[in-house]
């Protein structure tokens, strides 16, 4: 298993090694030590590699991940797993703002809290947060699921499109065009499935409330101008 020490190895070498995995290679488990808040760690992965990052990372860790499995044994800076395509990213600690921004697929699990704008502009990614999320989360969320076991901050789901939001705790306030919606059987099933994928036990789907788009801003109407 390649161990890359970012205290001595340049970031560029780590990422280019991750981009140059030969087809059928068995050497696909990487360990990264001494990340010390570095930016752009393990970005642009396009193969089913496993990366264990021992420590905290800066901006955009696992950005655009496509098929890799990245675990951060620490906390993550802004934009972790931004624009993820597929695969899995797990943050053992907390995540800063913009976690999972514009993600199109795959699963992002945050075991601690996520800060503001978690799931901003999400486009198909599934995000599971064990703790709480900050303000303006799922802003302009287009598709995918955001599951929060704790509480949500202000303006949840502002200008939401079709992303589905599930919160177990309290929601400080809902953003424009976001409303609580009925929890139907398919949503309970989906939640159970996401719990399984995220390795969550001891939590029941029935404990969550669902939030989605009120769809009032889908076509412009001057009488909704106060919402802009």
């Amino acid at each position: 298993m390649p161990v890359i020490d970012l205290a001595i190895t340049p970031l560029r070498d780590l990422n280019s090694a991750l981009h140059a995995i030969p087809q059928g290679s068995n050497d696909i488990a990487f360990e990264v030590v001494n990340p010390r808040g570095s930016h752009a760690v393990a970005v642009g992965i396009d193969a089913p590699v496993t990366v264990d990052v021992k420590g905290s990372v800066g901006y955009y860790c696992a950005g655009m991940n496509d098929g890799g499995s990245v675990t951060v044994h620490g906390s993550a800076g802004p934009g972790v797993a931004e624009n993820m395509m597929s695969g899995k990213v797990v943050i053992e600690g907390d995540a800063s703002q913009y976690a999972g921004a514009t993600g199109r697929g795959g699963l992002l699990v945050i075991k601690g809290n996520a800060a503001s704008r978690c799931g901003i502009s999400m486009k198909g990614i599934d995000i599971v947060v064990h703790g709480s999320i900050g303000h303006m989360s799922a802003f302009m969320g287009q598709s995918g699921h955001l599951v929060v076991l704790g509480d949500a901050g202000e303006a949840l789901g502002d200008s939401l499109y079709e992303a589905k939001l599930f919160v177990r705790g309290t929601v400080k306030s809902l953003g424009s065009d976001c409303m609580e919606k009925e929890m139907r059987p398919e949503h309970l099933t989906k939640l159970a499935e996401l719990f399984e994928m995220a390795g969550i036990t001891g939590v029941r789907p029935e404990e969550f409330k669902r939030y989605g788009s009120a769809r009032k801003l889908y076509n412009f109407n001057i009488d909704n101008a106060d919402a802009y």
Binding site: R12, A40, V43, G63, M64
Partner: peptide, 12 residues
Amino acid sequence: IKILELREITDW
């Protein structure tokens, strides 16, 4: 930092 990420993804 965003530019750094884009460069890293596309190997500079």
